[in-house]
Amino acid sequence: MALETVYTETANQQIGTETIEDAEISNNSVLHGPKYSDLLELLGHDRLSERVVALIQRIEADLPALLAASTVSDLQTRAHAMAGLCGIFGIDRLYALLGEVESACKDDDWLKAQDIVELLPRIWQQTRTALRQKIAGPA
């Protein structure tokens, strides 16, 4: 089966109450603005930028292992850890998807978890872009 066909079929499947098509997001819905603003006020632009750069590097390092997880337990553990990082920084969309992965794993629903995992690289790219835009200059 061609990759495009697999992607198209996956894109039409339900994830929770939302379809993958509904997962198309704008930069405005990737980050929780008030939480990011609170962090900016608390840390200042330079310190927050340093932490965001470190966060980006950490997720870039951890995401391949999450995508390659071969057991429900490993996937659940990795999704939980990454969701925690996302929650701290108000990375709402990725946080929600990782929570769905974790829930599917708790329900021992490997197929649902994998369907959601397939979305993570694209959502991460959108999130990384939004984060880089935020640290490009004071908000």
Score class of each variant (00 low, 15 high):
38 D>V: 12
98 L>F: 01
63 L>K: 02
75 L>F: 01
129 T>A: 11
124 W>P: 01
77 T>H: 13
138 P>N: 12
133 Q>G: 07
27 N>S: 15
85 L>A: 10
76 Q>Y: 08
33 G>M: 10
47 R>M: 11
1 M>N: 13
91 I>E: 02
105 C>R: 03
134 K>F: 12
29 S>A: 13
91 I>L: 11
132 R>L: 14
67 L>M: 12
93 R>I: 02
139 A>S: 14
119 L>S: 05
20 I>G: 04
108 D>Q: 14
26 S>I: 08
17 T>R: 07
21 E>Y: 03
89 F>Q: 08
136 A>H: 05
39 L>A: 10
130 A>P: 02
66 L>F: 07
45 H>M: 02
41 E>Y: 06
69 A>E: 02
103 S>T: 14
123 I>L: 01
22 D>Q: 10
125 Q>G: 07
41 E>P: 03
86 C>R: 04
78 R>C: 07
77 T>R: 13
61 A>Q: 14
9 E>P: 06
50 E>D: 09
21 E>I: 00
68 A>D: 11
37 S>R: 15
94 L>M: 13
105 C>Y: 05
12 N>S: 13
76 Q>M: 11
47 R>L: 14
6 V>W: 14
27 N>Y: 12
26 S>P: 00
47 R>N: 09
137 G>H: 14
125 Q>I: 03
24 E>L: 05
98 L>G: 04
37 S>F: 12
37 S>Q: 15
1 M>H: 10
57 Q>G: 15
136 A>P: 00
12 N>P: 01
32 H>P: 06
1 M>C: 12
95 Y>V: 00
135 I>E: 09
19 T>S: 04
38 D>P: 02
40 L>R: 08
28 N>H: 10
49 S>R: 09
16 G>T: 03
53 V>E: 12
84 G>Y: 05
98 L>E: 01
83 A>I: 07
124 W>K: 00
68 A>C: 06
5 T>M: 12
59 I>D: 05
107 D>T: 00
126 Q>L: 06
81 A>S: 14
118 E>T: 15
116 I>T: 06
77 T>C: 08
116 I>F: 05
60 E>N: 15
98 L>R: 00
35 K>M: 04
42 L>Q: 15
79 A>P: 04
88 I>T: 15
24 E>I: 10
25 I>K: 00
52 V>K: 02
29 S>H: 10
25 I>Y: 00
10 T>L: 15
8 T>L: 15
25 I>W: 01
124 W>D: 03
87 G>M: 07
50 E>I: 04
123 I>Y: 00
27 N>W: 12
107 D>R: 10
84 G>M: 08
85 L>D: 09
134 K>P: 02
64 P>Y: 09
42 L>K: 12
104 A>Q: 06
106 K>R: 13
17 T>N: 07
96 A>N: 08
123 I>T: 05
69 A>W: 03
80 H>N: 13
135 I>C: 11
54 A>V: 09
131 L>K: 04
60 E>G: 11
66 L>P: 02
21 E>V: 00
100 E>M: 08
88 I>R: 06
115 D>R: 01
36 Y>W: 09
94 L>F: 06
46 D>V: 12
75 L>H: 01
122 R>G: 09
97 L>N: 09
129 T>S: 11
57 Q>T: 07
58 R>G: 06
44 G>N: 06
136 A>Q: 11
133 Q>E: 12
51 R>T: 03
86 C>M: 11
100 E>L: 08
61 A>K: 15
88 I>E: 15
23 A>T: 08
126 Q>S: 08
51 R>K: 13
113 A>P: 03
4 E>T: 08
66 L>G: 03
